[in-house]
Design a protein around this nucleic acid. Structure first.
Length: 568
RNA sequence: CGGGGUGUAGGUCAUCGGUAGACCGCUGCGUUUGGGACGCAGAUGUAGAGAGUUCAAUUCUCUCCACCCCGACCA
């Protein structure tokens, strides 16, 4: 490719909207331009990188025996209604009607489509298992797009869906995908943590995120030195017993003229925070009240709570609701003697309540507290569950301190189980015993543009991008200097042609009348792995420099070919 | 959707009640040419949209729209 013909120029100033390094560099170097929020043009350079990423993924996926296909982008809405996902997806569905008023959903994920495809065939146990994947544009009307390519409303995703006769068979595939994903990202130079996480709207019981550690990432997760690694949403920990050796004292109601915060209670009674009970009142999407009770030094994990009570939306109750519906008082709520007052109330106690004795808490009246409250004796909960938010420094179940990390989620794998096959009619196979059975499923996604941005986040310096060779838009960047001298120009063209015949992808900066400094700056910004300078100085040699290194060296054409071959 | 912010040339910004300017970039000519060269000449704007106040609005007020940041959501 001749640089003089390349569409998309480098610029010096970036739009003020760009805050992330990847966004700035990709914009400056001419890889992307914005259309509207969360929708980007991929320019020729950007597309080349994305296609390389796609190749890396495809190669590893094909190795596992997965097969590539393509589904329509417009999904018939009735499919989404069949699984009841028109109301429960985590992202806003975009829909559209055709001339016959038929309703379609712009695909944001394709579980229903794949099941619908598979059920068009008479599947038997002999056909299973199989894994089908595609690269296709996904539409998600995200509440907020963010950070350049990091969170888009339209993006190419590799999504794969596997079908199995049984859970055991699925688990083999799941492990295979775990390894495949690790390999895929490694091939692009990305080290990923495999993080246990929450399924969200996809359904199923467990899943793992592939996360690249980064301060700008949105995924918060916790690790310990024994290899435990889980997203904040699902991370478990050992709450540690606090004072279980104390004997249970008599519960008393005392005056408590204090504010509404935990700290106010701590100060007033001069007792440790962990001995206090924290009571948080939520309302779910059906209007049920849910009182989460937890040890005072811990916080409620709303994701865990939602799973425990099978709700998919929670909000905090208002002060009026606390007073009127539950006859309690904000800041003084307690499970002890709380009246349901006609409202549906579910009290969920965290496991940590079993680690303390003689707790103190509000008395459902303004400026009244209870002291020496003990579970079972003084109050009962409707449900005991782990609803606590893990934090750095807490002990893991391995009794090792947890370390908090942040990262970018570039891919994930989900166990779906029978989630879809049980909801969609005909989603079944004929088993060896002649019976029709639902198949067991999994799904596996990678966002290409986000992965691209993540590579830039990891591989750059103050001058520009430093592409890993597997995804670089070109392998070699020839910088031609002194090109107004015929000899030099001819020589540069010759090298360009010869390298091309070797099958090497080259960007040749053939611009005449552009200063050396400008060309070097552009080469650094674009970040192609090898820079080759050809000028009147270099004569019949090539001046080679790796983007990732400082030194340049003069080599012959043949020696350079060897360097390139060696690097693969 | 809640909170905060921004909309002026392709980009970065200035101007501020009296109809717009700098730098980068772009075009042409010339001089330059190993780390973003210089000179000269030139092109580029319904100041996001609409309404209001005013003799006069890019400037003040309101509404809408778009975009960015923080939060809820996610590949």
């Amino acid at each position: 490719m001749l640089y003089s013909k390349l569409f998309g120029k480098t610029i010096k100033d970036v739009p003020k909207d760009a805050t992330l390094i990847s966004h700035k560099l990709l914009y400056k170097a001419g890889f992307i331009r914005e259309s509207t929020a969360g929708r980007y043009y991929l320019l020729p350079l950007g597309l080349r990188v994305q296609q390389n990423i796609q190749q890396v993924i495809k190669k590893e996926m094909d190795k596992t025996g997965a097969q590539e296909l393509i589904t329509p982008v417009l999904h018939p809405k009735y499919l989404w209604e069949e699984t009841n996902r028109t109301s429960s997806v985590g992202f806003e569905l975009m829909s559209i009607k055709d001339r016959n008023e038929m309703e379609f959903v712009l695909g944001g994920t394709a579980e229903e489509m794949l099941v619908d495809l598979v059920r068009k065939f008479q599947i038997s146990y002999k056909d299973l298992p199989f894994n089908l994947y595609q690269f296709s544009v996904k539409f998600r009307d995200e509440l907020r797009a963010r950070g350049g390519l990091l969170r888009l409303r339209e993006f190419v995703m590799k999504d794969a869906y596997s079908f199995h006769t049984s859970e055991e068979d699925f688990k083999v595939e799941y492990e295979k995908m775990k390894n495949t994903y690790t390999a895929i990202f490694k091939n692009m130079g990305l080290n990923t943590e495999v993080v246990e996480s929450d399924n969200g709207y996809i359904g199923g019981e467990y899943c793992h995120e592939f996360v690249v550690g980064s301060e700008i990432g949105e995924s918060k997760f916790l690790m310990d030195e024994m290899g435990y690694c889980a997203h904040e949403d699902v991370a478990v920990f050992d709450p540690e017993n606090k004072n279980l050796d104390e004997i249970e004292k008599e519960m008393t109601e005392v005056d408590a003229v204090r504010g509404n915060t935990m700290e106010d209670g701590e100060k007033l009674h001069n007792l440790p925070l962990w001995q206090q009970m924290k009571d948080v009142l939520y309302v779910d999407e059906k209007g049920r009240f849910i009182l989460a009770v937890i040890r005072g030094d811990l916080e409620v994990n709303e994701i865990k709570l939602m799973h425990a009570v099978k709700a998919y939306q929670l909000r905090h109750a208002t002060e009026d609701e606390v007073r009127q519906k539950l006859n309690s008082e904000p800041g003084f709520i307690s499970p002890v003697g709380i009246k349901k007052q006609g409202a549906e109330l579910k009290i969920v106690g965290d496991e940590s309540l079993r680690t303390i004795k003689n707790a103190y808490t509000g008395a459902n009246k303004k400026h009244k507290d209870y002291l020496n409250v003990n579970i079972d004796r003084d109050y009962k909960v409707d449900m005991e569950a782990d609803i606590a938010l893990a934090k750095e420094g807490y002990l893991s179940k391995n009794k090792k301190p947890l370390i908090a990390k942040k990262g970018i989620e570039v891919g994930n794998i989900f166990q779906l189980g029978f989630h879809y096959s049980s909801k969609m009619t005909g989603a079944s196979f004929r088993d060896v015993d002649g019976k029709e059975k639902p198949y067991y499923m999994g799904c596996y996604g990678i966002g290409l543009a986000r992965t691209l941005a993540t590579v830039v986040e990891v591989y750059h310096d103050d001058k520009g991008i430093i592409w890993p060779e597997t995804v670089a838009p070109f392998q070699v960047h020839i910088v031609g200097l002194d090109l107004e001298e015929k000899q030099v120009l001819e020589n540069a063209k010759k090298v360009y042609k010869l390298l091309q015949t070797e099958g090497i992808e080259i960007l040749f900066d053939d611009r005449i009348g552009v200063s050396a400094g400008a060309k070097f700056a552009d080469a650094d910004l674009i970040g192609i792995p090898y820079r080759v300078v050809i000028s009147k100085k270099t004569k019949d040699q090539l001046e080679v420099k790796k983007r990732s290194e400082k030194e340049t060296k003069f080599v012959s054409f043949e020696e350079f070919l060897k360097i390139l071959q060696f690097s693969h």
